[in-house]
Design a protein around this nucleic acid. Sequence first.
RNA 1: GGACCGGUAGCUCAGUUGGAUAGAGCAUCAGCCUUCUAAGCUGAGGGUCAUUGGUUCGAAUCCAAUCCGGUUCACCA
Length: 601
Amino acid sequence: MSIVSSIQKKVTAALSALYNQPFVEKDFQINLTKPEFEGDYTVVLFSLVKLLKQSPDAIGNQLGQELIRLNAGFFTGYNIIKGFLNLSIEESYWMNLLQNNHADIGYGKKEMNGKKVMVEYSSPNTNKPLHLGHLRNNFLGWSVSEILKANGYKVIKSAIVNDRGIHICKSMIAWQLFANGATPESTNTKGDHFVGDYYVRFNDEYKLQVEQLIQTGADKETAEKTAPIMKATQQMLLDWEEGKPEVIELWKTMNQWVYSGFDVTYKRIGSNFDVVYYESNTYLLGKNIVQQGLDKKIFYQKEDGSIWIDLTADGLDEKIVQRKDGTSVYITQDIGLALQKYEEYKIDQSIYVIGNEQNYHMKVLQLICKKLGMPNADNIFHLSYGMVELTSGKMKSREGTVVDADDLVDEMVATAKQHTEELGKVKDFTEDELNELYDILGLGAMKFYLLRVDPKKTMVFNPQESIDFHGFTGPFVQYTYARIQSILRKVAGESPLVNGESFITNDSPAEALLKLEKEVLVLLEQYPAAIEHACIEHNPSVIANYVFNVAKTFNSFYTEHSIANAETAAKKQLRLQLATMTANVIKSGMQLLGIRVPERM
RNA sequence: GGACCGGUAGCUCAGUUGGAUAGAGCAUCAGCCUUCUAAGCUGAGGGUCAUUGGUUCGAAUCCAAUCCGGUUCACCA
């Protein structure tokens, strides 16, 4: 139990005893005491004033005395300033916290709770390579999965691959027209980039044809519909749906190119999936659901045969669920897949990591699932995240203003290399060790950068300034870890110091905690709460901010006080444990973000 | 036009259930390497929390209106 909730309990008990009436935690508030005042935690008294009709000072004094009377070994004193009751905590509490948890690698993580969650993320299109926006999605999906695991959930990571449809046919047509049989191998190009180039090529050609048609007198709309390359693409989609062998063959080949490219990127950034759904397999799902919905009169049919649902009573629009030609639409597939997920895995919760441009769509999806009476429809959660914009504006693939994922990774790793070489601290590393370090640092910087911001907010990336390695960054946190490891390595060589040994012994009683030591401890105590908070909010930035705070606070302590050359043996032992626990929390927290930490850097 | 999201320091972002004098990083300026890694530390300057009104002991936080920005409202996916 966290110290805040344990104080809450004690205060509730004391109040009930004093005033002979029941109190709940919401009747008052517990905060960390501001550093300028004496004390550790503060009870805000104002809300009690109303309930008890007494002055804040009177309540504060009664409560303070009662708390100390009931918890003699826990609270050591109190003071009241302007309606705030500041409580001081017995030092042994912090000593015990450190003593009991410093070596616990699983500190802050919960026992398995028997619940299953599916996290769907990444969900790429197979017509172009991944860009910065996809990276945000991937890092978020991964991190949220790790956070759920740390909170005791069993997590199934899934992806739905958008491998069919008109956009896929566009790159296929362009390849047929312009490639002359070129392949990723023959051009020495990464497969996803190779296909993406033809997608761009399609758009260039299409634009050209539309302009030509407009010049010969066609209006814009007709031109866009009748451009030969577009007509060919539409024909190809029909051929694909009919299963025409040469189209299927080309489709398979080109998708395979993309997958092999994606594999490289996913491996590099550390994404993987337990289940991969392909839209070419799922796009017919949901058709029988439409029939059921029609029978139950949740859906209705228009004269032309198309099937709809009326959501106007819920403040939304009317939504089509099946076309007049009997084919299913996007939302129908999603309903089908949602149901399939439940049936296959019996999941308690289904999380979709999808950009906020789909907020409306996901709202509709959930509502329809509810109306259809699907099990667990209430436990569908859209983890909606904001776009990554550039300082110059939005990323647009057609205007060539996308930040390519592979390029960015390369750049980050190269920057890591450059910094490392300039500093010259790891000259004895082997080639392999160096490359691993560059990866850890480069990717760490990138992931931290994308995860430290609240997911739901649109964020801005400046390609000129790129991503920093100083300050509120991944490498800053990694550096703190590496420095601690350096000390621990050094001390491990000394005998007879045993790492797990208590710093409180009979012949050397515990010395008072210094201000900076205590600050670190107070923060470390909050780690379990941070993990829980991050889970409830589905928000990795909680962890990123927390872990930065820990690193920063530890660094202040580190420059001020020596660990290996502490004043006394007991102090040394305490600080070694403090450093160990800090390192463990950093490593654990970074792992929740999908970021590795180096032993040296 | 309807719905949803956002607006906090020059820039990028925190800010818990409404709590004490609104915080970090970058950038700028001034310091700190003979002692555990300076990718670090210490300090300074920098704010009409978009605006106005309301709720109350107390508002960046809640409510209303307004302004600005974004997303969305397809027989596309």
